[in-house]
């Protein structure tokens, strides 16, 4: 009886101590983590909307699983929208962000936030050469994947040897654009 009491006491004391220490430590780090996430978001918003050197103001319009829509202002005027979207890639989730003109005519720029594609193959979606081509693509219709040089603004060139990853990125963008158009129509009503 005495032995089992000792077991209970030791385990309880250590669990409470551990919980206490972690609670204190989390208080100390969580602000910093939140700040890191915020800076990272602002940096990428800036990058995909060409708002250099600094974004004056932005507002979150929609925030749901796998889709976030931000409205970017200059004064009271909307100058751009930015969309954070994620979806399945070849191996794991791909998360990306892109900026769109306020009238949804063109994509301003696109960046990959997270990806775990095969190095040397699918991971090329993070290269400048691939991302460059997203500048100025049409945002008012569905985009399609081609395996040669694109000749309309609705065509995106796939990466050789990484068709799955290229298709994933394209699908994520198409779905996000669809969702964003709906969200904006709803907001205008």
């Amino acid at each position: 009886m005495k032995e089992s009491l000792r077991i209970v006491i030791v385990l309880t004391v250590f669990s409470i101590l551990s919980g206490g220490i972690l609670g204190w430590f989390n208080k100390y780090t969580e602000k910093r983590v939140a700040l890191n996430n915020l800076t990272a978001l602002q940096e990428s918003l800036k990058a995909v909307t060409n708002m250099n050197p600094k974004i004056e103001a932005y507002e979150s319009v929609v925030k749901e699983k796998g889709f976030e829509l931000y409205k970017i202002f200059s004064g009271t005027e909307t100058v751009a929208y930015a969309i954070v979207a994620s979806g399945n890639g070849f191996q794991d989730k791909i998360k990306l962000i892109f900026g769109v003109k306020p009238d949804f005519s063109r994509i301003i720029d696109l960046r990959i936030l997270e990806q775990k594609e095969t190095p040397g193959m699918g991971a090329k979606i993070e290269t400048k050469k691939y991302l460059e081509q997203w500048k100025g693509k049409g945002a008012d219709s569905t985009l399609e994947l081609v395996k040669k040089k694109p000749n309309t603004k609705y065509q995106v060139e796939a990466i050789t040897g990484a068709t799955v990853s290229s298709t994933s990125v394209l699908n994520i963008v198409n779905r996000a654009l669809d969702r964003a158009r709906k969200a904006i129509k709803e907001a205008e009503k």
Binding site: S18, I21, L22, F25, N26, T29, E30, R32, V33, N36
Partner: peptide, 14 residues
């Protein structure tokens, strides 16, 4: 686990 969680949070913060 206590030490690991501390290390993990520290890396995430800094």
């Amino acid at each position: 686990a206590t030490f690991v969680t501390m290390a993990d949070r520290y890396l995430a913060a800094f």
